[in-house]
Every structure is written in C-alpha cells, then in structure tokens.
Design a protein around this nucleic acid. Structure first.
Lengths: 201, 201
DNA sequence: GCAAAATTGGACCTGCAAGTCCAAAACCCG
DNA sequence: CGGGTTTTGGACTTGCAGGTCCAATTTTGC
C-alpha cells in the first residue's frame, strides 16, 4: 500500500532530500523555496509532490530526520566509545572542528526555532536527537566511572544534561557571533572538571 | 528631520512594539502577520507603515531590541550584584522561574534562528545582548574572587562564556522538551563547581 | 512485448500577506 | 482660531510561493 518505489524513484527521493538539506543549510529554512530545491536537484514540481504528497512540510520533516541522524554520525566513532580520556578529547576536537567548519550553516538552526513549533513531528525529531545524544554522553560518563577515571559520586545523567546544554548553547552562540569560544570553553571546562574530580576522589 | 513624534504618536508606536512582541512570543516570528499585530494592538496598516517605514523588518528590529533589553532587566537586581552566594542562588532561581513560566514562548527563539540571518541589524542586537550578559556574569565571578569566595586561578571570562552557553542551551532544550532539567543542571553544577573550587584553593 | 504502474515535466490556479496610496480626522502652536 | 503637520483608516495593488492537474514517458513484472 504505502510501498511503491522503484530503484529510480528511491534515488530521486534521496536526491531531493539531500539537495534540500544542503540548500537549507546554505540559506536557512524559510529562505528556501520549492523552486530552489527543484533547481538545485534537477527535479520538477511534479516530482516533489509525488514523493512528498503533503508538500513542503513533509519534505522538511524528511530533511530534519536526515540532518539529525547526520549530527550523531559525525561524532562517531568517538561518541559511542567514550571510555578513555584520549577518546573524550578526540570527541571534543571533532565537535569543534565540525562546527567551526560549518560556521553559520546550521542544520538544526531551522529545526529548533520554527520547524519545531509548526510541525508537530519536527519537535519529536529534535527531542529524539537530543535524547540519543545525551544518553550517549551519560553512558560515557558511567563507563569512565566504572574504570575509576571519573569520581563515582558524580551524577552521570545530570552531568550529561548540563554538557549537552552547553554544547547546544555553544553552537547557538557560534551562529550569532561566528566564534567557537563558547563551545570550546564549555567542553574544556566540563572535561577538566570531570578529570579533576577523579583525582580528588 | 528624523524627529517628529507627538506624545500620542510616541504612545502608539510603543503600543505597536509591545503588542507585536507579545504576539511574537505567543505564536512565533514567522507565524505573525502584520494583520495580527493590527488586530492585537488596535491599529491600522497606515499606522504601522507610518511608524515603521521599512515595514516588517524595521518593526521586527524594534521588537528585538525591546525583548533583548527585557531579558536582562528580568534578571535584575541580581545579575548586576553577584557578590554573595545568596545572590547567585537568587539569580539562579529567577532564571529558572522566568523560563519555566515562559515555557515555549521564547522571544529569542525567532531572533536567533532566522531574524539573525536575514536582518543584519538583528544579529548585532543578539550579539550585544550576549555580550552584556556574559560581561555581567564575568564581573560577578571576579568580584567573588576578590572576596575569596571563588578560587583566584579560575578564568572568569572563560567560565562566564561556558555558563552563558549552558544557559542558552538550557533554554533551547526547554523550548524543545518543555522541561527545565537542562537549565537547572547547568546552573547547579556550574555554581557548585565554583563554590567547590573556593574550598579547594 | 505488453499492460499496469510508477515517474516526470511544466502550465496553471489560488490565496495570502507585504506594501502603496490617499483622503479624512486629530492635533499642535502661535 | 486657523494653517500646517501629524496621525489614522482602509481600500487597492502586487508578487510570489505553495499546491493542483494532467498528459507524456519510462519502468516493471509477467
């Protein structure tokens, strides 16, 4: 019923999502017209509405999911293996490098602000992303605790929540100021604090 | 030349800004039509373009400035007097209370995401707000250092940067999840860490 | 190779919201 | 009061972007 995509169709659909994502990263969600997507992906309006019957909203949702997955993928393999300090630092470096390169072009930018409010599904995507992200960090803290590299009296979940918030804020400030200072400060101070705690305990 | 507003005009202009701000907080920047503002403030299109010749963009800018100022005002008198731990905690409580009450209705929401990108002036407003905010926090840290309540080897500016990022991220996550957990975690952990440092030093 | 289904292109429609214009009313000040 | 200025109301224009429709073409499965 709902399934009916040939290989060619699948490819076209994917091309639209990827192209739209790029376009949105470049110019921002509500600056992107369907025509831009068409031009950038070499598709016609008929195709857009063929693969996304609910129009722009459905396309935006697909793009959102795509970008959300990408955010976590970009942090691998470190994020899933925060078992040693070198890995933590490599993760830190990857984050800063990634966002520095990205600069003002943030895929989440649009998601959080407006897409989140208008599309009910977009909110779910963002929440899911944040949840997975925070869980991975908390898991890393717990593993370090099990090896004695982080003090056992630390609240892993609370720490992960704070760190995640710091990262989000750091990226947000990067979008406004163009500088990675805040993001770096959060990561360095938090990680240092976690390491210091181990020595103390 | 540029000045020519009677008392009545001044009042109308202010009414428009305040009303538009409320409307935007309620429904989001790009969900608000000029007509909504007109209805909500009891004004006509002629008036809107009389007081804001450049139309929506100029109005948005005025609203942005108004909201930015409000954000800092809401943190007073604590933010400018972070000289004792009780004040720090009162500031923490005020922040959490304010944003909990505000919930999903965030004035900065629209500013950061899209206004910042389209309007060149809006970006300046956001940067200015963040700068004032961070400066106030850093000043608080330094004053606590001067009284020995915070360890002298702490980098006040870096700490302030990290804390500000955490707050922003906490608010951002509040917008997505509806929970203040992240904001609370950031504030509590950061403040605790600053207090612990004093004992150590 | 053929029918059914999926894919594609693009002309067309439609609604809406920003912005324009001007004439009427209120207001200020000597 | 009275002339000039500011303020106000609302009808009208305009451009645009999302969405509809359908006919032509390609692909698929048998």
């Amino acid at each position: 019923m709902t399934r009916a995509l040939t290989r060619k169709g699948e490819a076209t659909r994917a091309r639209i999502v990827v192209g739209a994502a790029a376009e949105i990263r470049e110019r921002g969600v509500d600056e992107v017209r369907l025509e831009d997507v068409m031009a950038h992906t070499g598709t016609s309006k008929g195709q857009l509405f063929h693969y996304f019957p609910d129009g722009k909203e459905e396309l935006l949702l697909a793009v959102a999911q795509h970008e959300a997955d990408q955010v976590l993928l970009d942090q691998e393999p470190m994020l899933s293996n925060l078992t040693t300090w070198p890995t933590w630092l490599a993760w830190r470096d990857r984050l800063i490098e990634r966002y520095r390169a990205q600069g003002v072009k943030c895929p989440l930018n649009g998601l959080l602000g407006q897409t989140g409010r208008r599309a009910p599904g977009a909110q779910a995507i963002v929440v899911g992303l944040m949840w997975r992200w925070q869980t991975a960090i908390a898991e890393g803290v717990r593993r370090m605790q099990s090896t004695g590299d982080i003090a056992p009296d630390i609240d892993a979940d609370r720490t992960a929540a704070a760190l995640l918030a710091g990262i989000q804020g750091g990226v947000l400030l990067l979008l406004s100021t163009g500088r990675t200072d805040h993001l770096e400060a959060v990561l360095d101070l938090t990680i240092d604090s976690l390491r210091a705690g181990a020595r103390t305990a």
